[in-house]
Measured scan of single mutants.
Amino acid sequence: MAAAAAAGAGPEMVRGQVFDVGPRYTNLSYIGEGAYGMVCSAYDNVNKVRVAIKKISPFEHQTYCQRTLREIKILLRFRHENIIGINDIIRAPTIEQMKDVYIVQDLMETDLYKLLKTQHLSNDHICYFLYQILRGLKYIHSANVLHRDLKPSNLLLNTTCDLKICDFGLARVADPDHDHTGFLTEYVATRWYRAPEIMLNSKGYTKSIDIWSVGCILAEMLSNRPIFPGKHYLDQLNHILGILGSPSQEDLNCIINLKARNYLLSLPHKNKVPWNRLFPNADSKALDLLDKMLTFNPHKRIEVEQALAHPYLEQYYDPSDEPIAEAPFKFDMELDDLPKEKLKELIFEETARFQPGYRS
Rank of each mutant, 00 (worst) to 15 (best):
E326F: 02
F296D: 11
E349N: 08
R148G: 09
A6G: 11
G37N: 15
K272F: 14
R24M: 02
H80E: 03
S248G: 02
K55Q: 14
H232R: 01
Q236K: 12
K330N: 11
Q62D: 09
R77D: 03
G182L: 12
R353P: 05
R91I: 11
L252Q: 14
D336M: 03
L150G: 05
L75I: 07
S122A: 06
N45K: 15
I211N: 15
A174W: 08
D167Q: 08
K203Y: 09
S223R: 06
N82E: 09
D149T: 01
P11E: 09
A352V: 12
E220M: 06
N262K: 15
I209P: 04
G204I: 05
W275H: 04
S29G: 09
L112K: 08
V173F: 10
R353K: 13
L264Y: 03
G22A: 11
S266M: 03
K231W: 00
K231Y: 10
G85M: 14
R225Q: 05
A309W: 03
N253T: 11
N281L: 09
N123M: 09
A307E: 00
L157V: 09
L150W: 08
L222N: 11
A7V: 05
Y43G: 11
W275P: 02
P23A: 07
Q249C: 04
S213A: 07
D337C: 07
Y312G: 05
K270H: 10
D106N: 13
Y128H: 00
A2N: 02
F348G: 08
R301E: 07
E220F: 14
M13V: 12
K54M: 13
A7L: 06
D175K: 08
N297V: 10
K207Q: 10
V14Q: 13
P356R: 11
T295E: 04
K292F: 07
P196Y: 04
D162S: 00
C127A: 08
K117S: 05
F348L: 15
C161G: 00
D251G: 06
I140C: 09
A4I: 06
K285T: 08
P247D: 06
A352M: 13
H125Y: 08
G169I: 01
K48L: 14
V273S: 08
R50A: 12
N47T: 14
L156G: 15
G22V: 15
E60H: 12
L155Q: 15
Y312F: 15
T63F: 13
T160G: 08
M98C: 08
A307Q: 01
I133V: 01
K48I: 12
N27I: 15
A7Q: 13
I227L: 11
Y139D: 04
L252E: 08
R191S: 10
L265Q: 14
E96A: 10
D111V: 14
Y233I: 09
I56M: 09
E322A: 14
P58I: 15
G357M: 08
T206G: 05
Q97R: 15
V304Y: 04
I227W: 06
I256D: 11
D20F: 12
L116G: 06
Y128S: 10
M293F: 06
D288S: 01
V101H: 03
C161R: 01
I255A: 06
D100P: 13
Y25G: 00
Y205V: 09
Y193L: 11
E305G: 00
R50D: 12
S360W: 03
E345W: 10
L289M: 13
A171H: 01
T185C: 07
D210S: 09
A6H: 13
Y36Q: 15
L252D: 05
I95K: 13
C65I: 14
D177F: 07
S360F: 11
W212G: 11
R135S: 13
Y43T: 09
G85W: 07
L137Y: 07
A143R: 02
L244V: 09
M38C: 13
P274H: 09
L313M: 15
D318L: 01
P311D: 12
A6N: 01
K55G: 12
P152T: 13
S41D: 12
D291I: 01
Y205I: 04
D177I: 07
K164Y: 08
Y263T: 05
V214F: 08
K203D: 11
I72W: 03
R135Y: 01
D106Q: 09
C166H: 05
R301I: 13
A195V: 11
S208A: 14
M221I: 14
E71W: 08
N262C: 01
V304L: 08
A35Y: 13
N87M: 02
D88C: 01
G230H: 01
H80G: 04
W212F: 11
I198W: 10
C254R: 11
F19L: 15
E314L: 05
L234N: 04
V104T: 03
M221G: 02
M108L: 13
T159G: 06
G245L: 10
L184T: 06
S246N: 11
K330P: 08
V188G: 13
V101R: 06
L346N: 10
A9C: 00
Y317H: 01
G37M: 12
W212T: 01
N45R: 10
A3F: 07
N47G: 12
N201S: 00
D167R: 02
L241P: 04
H269W: 10
P280G: 05
K99M: 15
F279P: 01
R77K: 03
A143H: 01
Q236R: 00
R50T: 13
F183E: 10
D175L: 11
G136V: 14
H141N: 15
D283A: 11
L107C: 03
H180D: 05
T160S: 15
L287F: 07
E186H: 02
L294G: 03
R79D: 02
D20W: 03
G37E: 12
D88Y: 14
A2K: 00
T206P: 12
H299V: 13
S266C: 15
H239V: 05
M333Q: 10
I324T: 00
P319G: 14
C166V: 02
D111S: 01
T159E: 09
I72Q: 13
E71A: 15
S57M: 14
L121R: 00
T94D: 04
L200Y: 07
Q315R: 10
C65K: 02
D106I: 00
Y312I: 10
E220W: 04
G37W: 11
D336S: 00
I83V: 05
S213R: 15
K138T: 08
A307R: 04
L134N: 03
K48D: 13
E326R: 01
V14A: 10
Y316E: 06
G215C: 05
K138L: 09
G230V: 13
I165H: 09
G32M: 00
D100V: 14
Q249G: 03
A352I: 08
T206M: 04
N87T: 11
D318R: 02
N262M: 02
N47R: 13
T351L: 07
A286C: 01
K340G: 13
M108P: 03
N158A: 08
V173C: 03
K203A: 10
F129R: 10
Q236S: 10
P268D: 04
E322M: 03
T181W: 11
H232W: 01
N158P: 01
T160R: 11
N297L: 04
T190H: 02
K285R: 10
K231F: 08
Q62P: 15
A92K: 02
C161D: 04
V18E: 10
K48Q: 13
P323Q: 04
L112S: 04
I302L: 14
P319K: 08
A195F: 04
K164N: 15
W212E: 11
G242P: 05
N158H: 10
I89H: 11
Q62T: 10
S142P: 00
N45E: 13
D20C: 10
V39M: 07
N87L: 09
L200C: 06
W275F: 03
H299E: 11
F183D: 06
N144T: 13
K344H: 07
Y113E: 03
P268R: 06
D88F: 03
K151P: 02
K340V: 04
A286E: 03
D106E: 15
R194W: 04
L130V: 10
H120P: 13
G245K: 03
Y128Q: 06
G230R: 04
L134G: 05
T295S: 14
Q66N: 05
L155G: 01
L265D: 10
T190M: 03
A92R: 04
I227T: 06
L258Q: 15
G34H: 00
S223Y: 15
Y316T: 06
L343T: 10
Y139C: 11
Q306T: 05
D20N: 13
P247H: 14
H232P: 10
A4V: 13
E197T: 01
N123K: 15
S284H: 10
H239G: 14
K259Y: 05
L265G: 03
S223M: 10
Y358M: 10
